[in-house]
Design a protein around this nucleic acid. Structure first.
Lengths: 234, 234
DNA sequence: CCAGGGTTTCGAACGGTGTTCGGTGGGCGA
DNA sequence: TCGCCCACCGAACACCGTTCGAAACCCTGG
């Protein structure tokens, strides 16, 4: 170990360079870790290690891991821009908002799990996005109750979409591998007993083909069309 | 079989009664554990313990925990009954199918997380449900491609709905506690700065009120109406 | 300028997790 | 009956989130 510091030498500041721990600093480090190695790597130990300290040190700035997750999610949501609602284009605006959120989440592997794992987000940015969503829905002509329910629905739906998209991107991180896996599933479906699963066998192609983009747009169309239909209801 | 054990010799068979470990037995035990204590309790150790053995013993019957989850999910899906498709009532049938799946999941705390956590389910019961869904969608007049995409969408959507419903039921398991928590959120939303979050403040009531049932039915209506609208598309 | 006190830091530990390894023992085919 | 095979399981590895208590630090009041 280190030689004891001589008395005449000013006590060398034990850890001179590293700035004091900050909640912001912890969250930043956690997010870089998330971007680099996925959600599994974001453990209290790993984050602390990346900051050059031990896990116990984090608990002065965070109540627990759940709080860290909430803060990470809200920081990510800060990147989402919410448009000024335009009554003529509310459908496109809503789709674009959802699209950008899903894009954000899929570009940060594991953040979808984070969004799902976290309980009702009440951070400043989550509120901002919610407010923006409500504004778009209002110019879309939805009733108050429908707006509220729809906002909830959209949040859930968005996380689910991102999570599903992330399932593929996250596990493999290798386009060729994904393609291979999809081909495997297709072949498996196509070879099932035709008498018990006639539709699956017949639609094996459609079930597995189509980029994520297409399926995703389909989901958006269904959502928006459905909202428009029931706009007065509830 | 062998010579009867002499009366003076105490029963040698170390654990005579317990049947040999079976994949089915393990899954059953895991499901009872899930029902009783939630998903967090379903660890390899706890399951093994409940079977009177150690965690290592399970790995002779399961590749890993992920496989256990898949098997549990598929076993649960066995309870879902898929109706004979009726062209006149396909909307109601679809809603009822989704409703029963979500009911199933919410009645088994944590199984929604299980459905989300699991990658594309390909167990026999999952296939059966998928086949049934496709059949209903077909009599609903959807194109092949739309059927395929919609089936995917419904699976995602269902898990998301169940997960959301489960977020409340799972964490607390105490109705009074949930109500209290909802009231807290309502009060928090109502007291936000009105200039930055006018809609949230105004709709604080609608955002937090309404039983899960109502919000859920709203989501179903949106989904089915949307599907009907885009039935020819894609 | 110094003392005191609150805050921050952090090594160590507790009780959990999934999974692997290597040995053992019992049932079954030859 | 022998020998093999494989389910079984104790032990261990490398993690995890969180808590405790003592040390180190900084700011404030005197």
């Amino acid at each position: 170990m280190a030689v004891p510091t001589p008395p005449w030498q000013r006590p060398t500041r034990s850890v001179p360079v590293r700035p004091r721990l900050t909640q912001q600093g912890i969250v930043d480090q956690a997010l870089t870790l998330l971007a680099k190695e996925g959600l599994d790597a974001v453990s209290m130990r790993r984050v602390a290690q990346a900051l050059g300290t031990g896990p116990a040190s984090l608990y002065a700035h965070l109540r627990n891991k759940e709080e860290l997750y909430q803060l990470m999610l809200d920081q990510l949501l800060g990147e989402v821009v919410v448009p000024e609602p335009d009554p003529e284009f509310w459908r496109e605006q809503l789709k674009e908002l959802i699209r950008s959120m899903v894009r954000l989440m899929t570009s940060h592997p594991g953040s979808a799990q984070l969004a799902i794992a976290t309980t009702v987000p009440t951070g400043p940015n989550a509120l901002r996005v919610t407010e923006g969503t409500l504004a778009i829905l209002r110019v879309g002509g939805l009733s108050d109750r429908a707006m509220a329910f729809a906002a909830d629905l959209i949040a859930t739906y968005t996380s689910a979409l991102a999570l599903e998209a992330g399932t593929w991107a996250d596990a493999v991180l290798d386009p060729a591998g994904v393609e291979e896996r999809i081909r495997q599933i297709h072949d498996y479906l196509a070879v099932l007993p035709r008498d018990r699963f006639p539709l699956i066998v017949a639609l094996a192609g459609s079930l597995t083909e189509g980029s994520g983009e297409e399926r995703f747009d389909f989901g958006l169309d269904v959502l928006v069309a459905g909202l428009e239909r029931v706009s007065g209801t509830a």
